[in-house]
Amino acid sequence: MIKARVTVTLKTGVLDPQGKAIEGALGTLGFAGVGHVRQGKVFDIELDGSDKAKAEADLKAMCEKLLANTVIENYSVTLI
């Protein structure tokens, strides 16, 4: 079995009001020196088989078709 981690983040230039709110809350908690915070998503996915090249290709297709909205989000795939 192959385990993978997919990370989806907002593209640069896309407004992230939730990240901004988290940024403010960290400041309120007294963490000094916190710069920009951007919120994203993480998907841990298990795949049958051992063909890593196929797994990477499948995961990329999953990102393009469902996991990320490529209008506003970037994604990265890591096999773990």
């Binding site: 009001p17 709110a21 909205n69 209008v71």
Partner: peptide, 17 residues
């Protein structure tokens, strides 16, 4: 319709949250 790709752009969380 945006997620289907029938319309351009995306809708995000309200700026006010």
């Amino acid at each position: 319709l945006l997620e289907t790709g029938l319309l351009p752009g995306a809708l995000m969380r309200n700026a006010s949250l």
